[in-house]
Design a protein around this nucleic acid. Structure first.
Length: 491
RNA sequence: CGGGGCGUGGCGCAGUCCGGUUAGCGCACCUGCUUUGGGAGCAGGGGGCCGCAGGUUCGAAUCCUGCCGCCCCGACCA
């Protein structure tokens, strides 16, 4: 049992906060609402980045970089967009400081006021579409498939490490197309990419769907999303992909000549995932001993802890460990030997459990004698003594097994927490007693959605894309419904 | 912005109500010895503008006034 980590069943929220800090993932900074991503946390994020980035490249996208600052006037060009983001923008008004005449320190130089204020980007649609206007003239310039890795700022009232911070890291894809159909296909394709990444790398099962009008991205025609379920029964939006229609093309006057020589507005999409995925990764798999990482995203997949009484023993063990490491690295497995003499084995065991390393090898004099190693799995917390021969193949299989096991475990939990209800009373009882996703009929009106949100704090997470069509009656109004939608309390 | 709480070695806290030796405890840190297959033991040691400013008093971490900061709950949100 980990020292000082609260138990998740006692206080899920503190468990999460403490885990993030104790596992060395991130900490609060001197700037309110902004986090410091620590080296271990960042290396997990880098693993995520490189896997998703590869998928973007494989689907024809290229990376570029657009500015951090956006002229204030840009933001107001798309009406819904400014409406959605205005309340959470950081604004740059001056470009110079000067020494305070009265006391110590510096003050903003009132002489140095900007003629037009700059907004620190909350998202980049506006700067990017203002650029696309220059880049697109003909159907031959389309499609334009661009992604950028960046930081953005949204001035949130309350923040939590990874889940909601004032500044966060993300990728944002922005594409332009000649036809509506092609843009819709792009938005769907990227939702598939996110689904693939969430399920096959993060081992997090997700529900694909489309957002209701009230939950839609500001400026989009349709917002597609993937929704995951955390171990406390709350949902978390893990990725979004927006079909923008011609909204931004019209706002920024981006037209192209089609094959018939006629001028038309370009069709757009945008899609993104953020460092919030770190929060999902933590909350879906981890336990009271600490972080649990899926092998595909673990910075160290295997750690070797030597157990020794003196330098001679350490030397012999290091040699053996070296042989194991070489074999594992040949198979593309990342492995680390922790031969520090400053910490004892027991301390290291606990440490690597806290940090979620999928497999731990303990190697001592007893193993040298018997030609064995002790293998400990992080996901099941089980240990086995196995022969040294064929250890590399065994470990490779185990890592695959752990990856699959984590996904299956999360999926089983998720599926057990999807409840179909027929009445509002059942809805409220389920939300209160069990949590999770609730599948219920909804009449499609914003009024009903709003009423449920106000009374229960549950929101419509999505209208499922691959959900079965089934006619029924809305749990509130009793009006007819063609399909059930997913409700949940969400982060 | 509304409601609640908290500022004391690096971290977590006690002490504050009811003013009085040198401000204490756990963890961490340093030194030495013994240890090392699940967060070692013993001994010794270092580290504090008690959030800031003013006031009351012989005397303030403690009482009074003002300010600052942070956390939690709500409205907002990836």
């Amino acid at each position: 049992m980990s020292k000082g980590l609260p138990k998740m069943e006692d206080d899920y929220s503190s468990w999460y906060n403490e885990l993030v800090k104790k596992a060395d993932l991130a900490e609060n900074s001197a700037v309110r609402g902004c986090m410091i991503v620590k080296p271990y946390g960042f290396s997990i994020w880098e693993k995520m980045q490189s896997a998703i980035d590869k998928m973007f490249k494989e689907t024809g996208h290229t990376n570029a970089y657009f500015p951090l600052f956006i002229p204030k006037s840009f933001l107001s060009k798309e009406a819904d967009h400014v409406e959605g983001f205005a309340k959470e923008c950081a604004v740059v008004t001056h470009y110079r400081l000067k020494n305070d005449e009265n006391g110590q320190g510096v003050v903003v130089d009132p002489e140095a006021r900007l003629e037009e204020e700059l907004i620190v980007r909350p998202t980049s649609e506006t700067v990017i579409w203002s650029t696309y206007k220059n880049w697109i003239q003909s159907y031959r310039d389309l499609p334009l498939l661009i992604n950028q890795w960046a930081n953005v700022v949204r001035w949130e009232m309350r923040t939590r490490l990874f889940l909601r911070t004032t500044e966060f890291l993300w990728q944002e894809g922005h594409t332009a197309h000649a036809t509506e159909q092609e843009a819709i296909e792009e938005a769907s394709k990227m939702l598939e990419v996110y689904t693939d990444f969430a399920e096959n790398f993060m081992a997090v099962p997700v529900i694909k769907g489309v957002k209701t009008e009230s939950e839609r991205f500001a400026g989009a025609v349709d917002t597609y999303c993937i929704e995951a379920l955390m171990q406390d029964g709350k949902a978390l939006q893990a990725g979004t992909s927006h079909f923008l229609g011609q909204n931004f093309a019209k706002a920024f006057d981006v037209k192209f000549s089609n094959k018939d020589g006629a001028l038309d507005y370009v069709w757009g999409t945008s899609w993104g995932v953020t460092t919030r995925l770190m929060g999902a990764l933590i909350m879906v798999h981890s336990d009271n001993n600490g972080l649990v990482l899926p092998p595909k995203l673990a910075p160290d997949q295997v750690v070797i802890v030597p157990i020794f009484k003196n330098d001679d023993q350490l030397k012999a063990l290091s040699e053996k460990a070296g042989q194991i490491m070489e074999k594992l690295r040949d198979r593309g497995i990342t492995v680390k030997l922790d031969d520090r003499t400053t910490h004892k084995p027991g301390w290291k065991f606990a440490e690597y459990e806290l940090k979620g390393v999928p497999l731990r090898i303990a190697l001592g004099p007893r193993d040298l004698e018997n030609n064995t190693v002790e293998l400990a799995r992080r996901d099941t917390l089980t240990k086995e003594v196995v022969p040294m021969d064929g250890i590399d193949e065994h470990i490779q299989n185990l890592l695959e097994d752990i990856q699959n096991n984590l996904f299956e475990k999360a999926r089983t939990y998720r599926d057990q927490h999807i409840t179909r209800v027929e009445t509002y009373q059942d809805f409220k009882d389920t939300l209160e007693e069990k949590g999770g996703f609730i599948l219920a009929h909804w009449d499609g009106t914003a009024e009903t959605e709003q009423k449920i949100k106000e009374e229960t704090k549950a929101t419509i997470r999505c209208i499922p894309l691959d959900g079965e069509m089934e006619s029924g009656k809305c749990i509130i109004s009793g009006k007819p419904s063609k399909q059930r939608v997913y409700f949940a309390k969400a982060y």
